[in-house]
Amino acid sequence: MAERCGSLLEACRRLATEPGLRPILGGTDLMVASPHERARQGRWLDLSCFDEMRGIAERGGSVWIGAATTFTALQADASIRRHFPALVAAASEVGGWQIQNRATLGGNVANASPAGDSLPVLAVLEAVVVLGSAAGDRLVERRVPYAGFHVGYRATALAPGEVILGFELPLPGPGLEQRFQKVGTRQAQAISKVVVALAGRCAGGRVQTLRLAAGSVAATPVRLRQAESAAVGLELAAAAEAAGSAARQETTPIDDVRSTAAYRSAVLGRVVRRLVLSLTPDSE
């Protein structure tokens, strides 16, 4: 981490070839370790200053968000506020102010905790994860749809030496409403018990489009596909009931130190039902 910047190509090359070298952005996950553990983790390579990982910009039909964007920056950005209110809501609930000033979207996704707050939001917004790696003397990009990024418990599609450059979020169509809800303990505490994100739209009192995703209810953040299809086409109140019970059936949360499976499952059902019910019956 000593050398500030240099080239991203060189950084990717080193990550691919030097065992024990790990990328760092805000450090709010990596630094939570005793000095002893940190010494064992090996060395870190600072990615926070690469231009390729910075900025927020509308490009064609989507918005680019650099991996190094902090949750504070996300909340302040006019384009994010306008198009992605659920992402703003999630950003404002990641830890406290000091954490939000350092924690990044890229770090949250790469860390791949099933409880990461932004993850279900990126899932319902159908983000594309843009990855970069060194191929000879060129930096090559690879685009992975969010649904294929989390492949198992804390496992991602990132290949060795590959880094997240940023995210492309398709602009939401007209009338697409977004919701985010986190059920946790204390706001600034690291881990939620259940997180749910929704993107959807009704027409004529019936659910027309629905995307739902949840965190902390499985080994990875998950799209609630059965809840989605159970609800589409139904009148709003019935859709909310159907989505809530399908969501409980399609997930198998675990017991752990923070909560029990039964509690998580009950909360998931209720939150999904309430979020669906909060849609505007006729968005035209």
Partner: peptide, 29 residues
């Protein structure tokens, strides 16, 4: 020492951050 309490808060380029979670290498300049 784990980011939970805030007792180590300092300003980095004017923004409050937790100095127990900032590697000093990222403070250069």
């Amino acid at each position: 020492g784990e980011g939970e309490c805030g007792a180590c808060t300092v300003l980095l380029d004017g923004q409050p951050v937790l100095s127990c979670l900032v590697p000093v290498g990222q403070c250069a300049g």
